[in-house]
């Protein structure tokens, strides 16, 4: 069949691929390459002439404290997101799948925890801005009522708490989403393994440790990497809630790039940030491929 198809339709696969390839070339790959080239010049959106600066933008970027502040915040984003969205989510998924509660109740819990994930980021961001507001926000109002007045603060307005307040919102939005992915992974673990463990007298915790965790190892690994890469790509929630402020305290690479390009109009410098972001996410994705492969060998 292959040979017949091969002879009769040798052009067909290329024609079928053509639209996808053209679109990706023009709107994905050429821009990435352009970004490298852009980073070697000093230019802005109005300048008719570009000044060649070679690696000048990178020499300026590496000692820039905002760059390191951003990377530090991206790293916090990654650490907290992995802890909550992967590891806490895994424990919650295992608990829901342990059938400690009936199916209807567990479906209700699952749907409730998932629901924030379908909301647009601006809806989430603005809602939480209101919840965090010093005067009318629910969080300070509750702290006030329970007598913890000293804990109240301008959550998004103080340098110490801004980034963590934003990170918390991301956890709120994505915990249920990853929990659902992990539930499906747990369902793919053969039932017999659980039965065998129970016959050996394993309780809930040992079943989790000895059956569930090894059974979902590969999925967990993939989710860790997706979450870490996602933490370095984050832009929208930070931009909506704090725009990187106050005083760059909650800046991440995405907001730093956007501000540099479209507020400060330093296009070459912004392209250098984009290139650094490319190498970081590319390296993390390469780790994913490598880890995925060695996971299958094991």
């Amino acid at each position: 069949m292959v040979s017949r198809m091969g002879r009769r339709t040798n052009l067909a696969p290329y024609l079928f691929l053509l639209p996808a390839v053209v679109l990706m070339l023009v709107f994905v790959y050429i821009p990435v390459i352009e970004s490298f080239r852009f980073s070697l010049f000093k230019w802005n959106s109005f300048s008719p002439e570009w000044t060649w600066v070679g690696l000048g933008n990178y020499r300026k970027l590496l000692p820039d404290p905002i760059f390191w502040q951003s990377i530090g915040n991206n790293i916090w984003y990654a650490i907290i997101s992995v802890a909550i969205q992967v590891f806490l989510a895994l424990m919650l998924a295992a608990l829901l799948e342990s059938h400690a509660v009936g199916r209807r109740l567990s479906t209700f819990f699952r749907t409730s925890l998932f629901l924030p994930a379908v909301l647009a980021i601006t809806i989430v961001g603005v809602t939480w801005q209101m919840l965090y507001r010093p005067d009318t926000g629910l969080i300070n109002q509750v702290l006030h009522v329970v007598g913890l007045d000293s804990w109240t603060r301008a959550w998004l307005g103080e340098e110490r708490t801004a980034i963590f307040s934003v990170i918390a919102v991301s956890q709120w939005q994505s915990l249920g989403y990853l929990m659902v992915l992990l539930i499906v992974a747990i369902r793919a673990v053969p039932r017999e393994l659980y039965e065998a463990a129970r016959i050996d007298g394993a309780g809930i915790w040992r079943q989790f440790r000895d059956v569930t965790v090894p059974g979902v190892r590969e999925t967990t690994l993939v989710l860790v990497i997706i979450t870490v890469v996602g933490a370095f790509k984050v832009f929208d929630v930070v931009w909506v809630m704090t725009a990187g402020g106050p005083n760059h305290a909650s800046e991440v690479l995405g907001t730093f790039l956007y501000r540099t390009a479209f507020r400060d109009d330093e296009m070459g410098y912004a392209s250098a940030i984009a290139t650094m972001l490319f190498f970081i996410t590319f390296a993390l994705a390469a780790v994913q491929l490598w880890a995925g492969r060695s996971g299958k060998d094991a």
Binding site: F27, V28, I30, P31, V32, E34, S35, F38, V229, F232, K233, F235, L253, G254, L257, Y258, A261, M267, A270, S271, A274, T275, L277, F278, T281, F282, A285
Partner: peptide, 10 residues
């Protein structure tokens, strides 16, 4: 594997 941010400016 590509972050949309990288393509944004171009």
């Amino acid at each position: 594997m590509l972050a949309p941010e990288v393509s944004l400016l171009p």
